[in-house]
């Protein structure tokens, strides 16, 4: 391809997305799945959008890609801990091999 830096970022993003979704399948319970997928898929999609910016430069699509990077980097952690809190409150039990669960202890203590 005629733009080596942009191609490099796109390939990096594709590989990170793949690792994130493998984590979504292999990890044992909801919370670990949320962690792996949030980290890897967030950075992977940001890398793909950065590759688009390298390809297009300062055109309409490139600027929108930069805005989208900021938006995704701000909202993905928020949705992840909204989901984790909702799963804990709705009674999804952690995995049997988990070591400590302070949060469940505190919720039960409150009620």
């Amino acid at each position: 391809m005629n733009n080596p830096l942009g191609s490099f970022f796109i390939v990096l993003g594709l590989i990170l997305n793949f690792f994130g979704c493998i984590g979504l399948i292999r990890f044992p319970d909801v919370y670990t799945r949320l962690q792996s997928s949030a980290k890897c898929v967030m950075l992977g999609t940001c890398a793909i959008l950065l590759g688009l910016f390298m390809f297009k430069g300062f055109t309409a699509a490139g600027i929108k890609a930069l805005l989208c990077i900021v938006f995704i980097a701000l909202t993905t952690p928020v949705s992840v801990h909204a989901l984790a809190k909702g799963a804990f409150r709705s009674g999804v039990k952690p995995w049997d091999g988990s070591v400590a669960d302070e949060y469940v202890k505190d919720i039960i203590k409150k009620r």
């Binding site: 044992p28 670990t32 302070e102």
Partner: peptide
Amino acid sequence: DVPVRPGTVK
């Protein structure tokens, strides 16, 4: 073997 020992801490 997926080496995780998850848990919530303060």
